[in-house]
Design a protein around this nucleic acid. Structure first.
Lengths: 154, 154
DNA sequence: CTTGCACCTTGGAATGATTATCACTAGCTT
DNA sequence: AAGCTAGTGATAATCATTCCAAGGTGCAAG
C-alpha cells in the first residue's frame, strides 16, 4: 500500500510522465511537485506565481504547456466553471472519478468522490427521450452552494 | 394556455423585460426576437452576425450587454463548456430546470429536461461526507457523448 | 562518456472573448 | 413637451490562452 508521505503523489506522477515517454525537465519536476498534492484546483496563474520565487526564469507558457501535457496524458483534469469575469481554467491532480462542489461565496472548489462517471440507467433513459440517438459517454456534475465557512458568515 | 405561435416566447420575454423596469429599445427587441425561440445555445457572436444584416449599426457590445441583462434578470442562462481554444459563452433562453448534453463530435448542445435542479437526498448525503458543512443549492449536469449524427459517422 | 536530435523552454507577440469607458441618444415619467 | 436616466455605439482595455522563432537540453544509442 501507499505510505501517504508528502511528495509521494508527485513521484508517482513523475514516474508516469517518464513512462509516457515525456522528458523530465527541471521545470516539469517543479510544477509536478507543487501541483500533485494540491487539492485547491489552482489556475495556471496560481502555480506560476508560486513557482516564480524559486524559478524566476520560468515562462508562463511552460506552466500552461506542462499542465496541458499532464491533462493529455491523463494525469490531471481541467475544470472550467461558468463565471462572469476572468474565468481561468483550474487544474485538478485528482484522477479518480469525482464531481465538484463550488462555493458561490468564496469560489472554492471541492472534490466530491463518485463511484463512476458513467450515467445511471435512469439518466440514459431520460436522455433517450430528450435527445434521441445521443450516445452518452460520461456525466459531469457541479454542485452549487455555500461552503461551511461562507454559510456561517451569511 | 399558450398558443405556441412563433414569437410568443419573445413577446413574453419582452413583457418580462418591461416588468423588470428595463427599457425596450429597438436593439433589445431585435435580440430578444431572434434569441427567445432559439434552442441552439448561440454565442454572442452568432447572434451578432445574424442581426448585422438587418441592423448594421448594432454594436457587438450591445449584444453582450443585452444578453447579460437578460441573464441577470433571470430570463436567460449562460452555458460555459470546457474547451481548449476560443471558448465563447453560450446563451440559453430556456429558463425551465434542465441539464445539457454536449456532443464531443460537433459541439452541439442539447437541453435535457429535469424536474428539478435540487440535489437528491442521496447526493446531499454524499456531499455531507465529502464536504462537511457544504450547503448545496443546486446541481448542474453535463452529459458528454455523441449526438445521433456524429455517432453514425464514426 | 560523447553525441544527436527530438522535444523543451523562453519571451514576447498574436488571438479571442469579454468588459470598461464615455460621449451621445432615446425611452419613459411628469 | 422636457428632463432624467439608462441604453447604445465605437473603441480601447483586459484577461486567458496560444503561437512562434530561437536557443537549450534530456536521454537513448553508440
Amino acid at each position: 500500500m501507499t505510505t501517504g508521505g508528502p511528495g509521494e503523489r508527485a513521484d508517482e506522477m513523475l514516474r508516469d510522465l517518464r513512462r509516457a515517454g515525456l522528458k523530465l525537465t527541471p521545470q516539469r519536476i517543479a510544477i509536478v511537485r507543487l501541483f500533485a498534492g494540491d487539492p485547491s484546483h489552482p489556475t495556471a496563474q496560481d502555480l506560476f506565481e508560486r513557482l516564480r520565487p524559486a524559478f524566476p526564469s520560468m515562462s508562463f507558457a511552460t506552466v500552461y504547456n506542462t499542465l496541458d501535457t499532464l491533462a493529455r496524458a491523463g494525469m490531471a483534469g481541467i475544470v472550467r466553471l461558468p463565471g462572469k469575469r476572468g474565468d481561468a481554467a483550474r487544474f485538478d491532480p485528482n484522477t479518480a472519478a469525482h464531481h465538484h462542489a463550488v462555493c458561490d461565496g468564496c469560489g472554492a472548489v471541492l472534490d466530491i468522490a463518485a463511484g463512476t462517471l458513467s450515467p445511471t440507467p435512469g439518466a440514459v433513459k431520460k436522455l433517450g427521450r430528450a435527445a434521441p440517438g445521443f450516445a452518452v459517454h460520461s456525466v459531469e456534475r457541479i454542485y452549487r452552494g455555500l461552503c461551511a465557512g461562507c454559510a456561517r458568515g451569511r
